[in-house]
Computed example of a mutant assay.
Amino acid sequence: MKDNITICLIDDHQLVREGIKLIVDQTKNMEVIYEFECISSFKKAEIKNVDIVLLDLTLADSQGVASINEVKKKLSNTPILILTMHHESQFGVRAMQAGAKGYLTKDNASSELIYAIKKILNGKKYISSNFSELLIATNFDKHQGPLHNQLSKREFSIMLLLASGKSPTEIGYELNISIKTVSTYRARLLRKLDIQNNTEITRYCLDNSLII
């Protein structure tokens, strides 16, 4: 691990960013050198020599694992630690599958943040004991936990886009797939979630705090 650790922080709440910086500032040789309130401003910025990204999953212009994908496009070799208000059962499994190296809820940040950062920069992954149990259950029985854990990565992405009000045409354009393919994935996720239409998709996502 490097002697001087540099951090990029992406969170849309200023008070949260200030709190995180306060925790980091109390640690020797660790500094937040970039901070952004949304993915759009992050994408526009020129970023160099950052060791880790702390990423919220609920941003004004990006929701869920889509944020991870955007960060990885720009900083493909930089580890990402998810720092979020969402419980592990909501986004944890998806976040790790999407390439995050750790998942930390904000209510545990004051006690676990520095440990999580150092563990990840030592080449390991950070997960809480509760999340560890969830991962074991998910690996051995995909029917454990919320129904959306049964969805494929593509089905999950399309579910979130439909829940946000986007049409199949808009989704097809965004994901570079045909409208027919979007419809096929939609039919599969409806069956797996045991729901009937887009209104119920939105309700499911709201009930499970997958969108706000």
Rank of each mutant, 00 (worst) to 15 (best):
T184D: 11
T138D: 07
I7T: 00
S89Y: 11
L190F: 11
G64K: 01
K2D: 11
Y115W: 08
H13M: 13
F91E: 02
L190I: 06
N4V: 06
L161G: 08
K192A: 01
V16E: 01
L55C: 09
L59V: 08
E200N: 05
F131V: 09
N208F: 11
A163G: 15
A116K: 03
I82N: 03
I177H: 08
I158A: 00
T84C: 03
K21Q: 14
I201R: 03
N122G: 11
I23L: 10
D141E: 13
Q97N: 08
Q97D: 15
L193M: 09
N49D: 09
K44G: 12
K74I: 13
I80V: 07
V71M: 01
L121F: 03
M30A: 00
K192P: 01
P168E: 03
A163V: 15
K2H: 06
T6M: 08
Q150A: 09
S167I: 14
K166D: 08
K73R: 12
M159W: 03
L151C: 04
L147Y: 07
V71N: 00
K119H: 01
V71E: 00
I39F: 00
I10N: 03
A100D: 01
I68V: 04
I117M: 00
H148S: 09
I158D: 00
A187V: 07
K119G: 00
I68Y: 00
A95R: 00
N69I: 06
L83A: 02
C205V: 10
D56W: 02
D12L: 06
E112C: 13
E133W: 07
D12P: 04
T105D: 04
D56Q: 03
F140V: 09
E70D: 13
K142A: 12
F156C: 05
P146D: 12
G19M: 06
A100V: 03
N49T: 05
P168H: 01
S167D: 15
E88T: 04
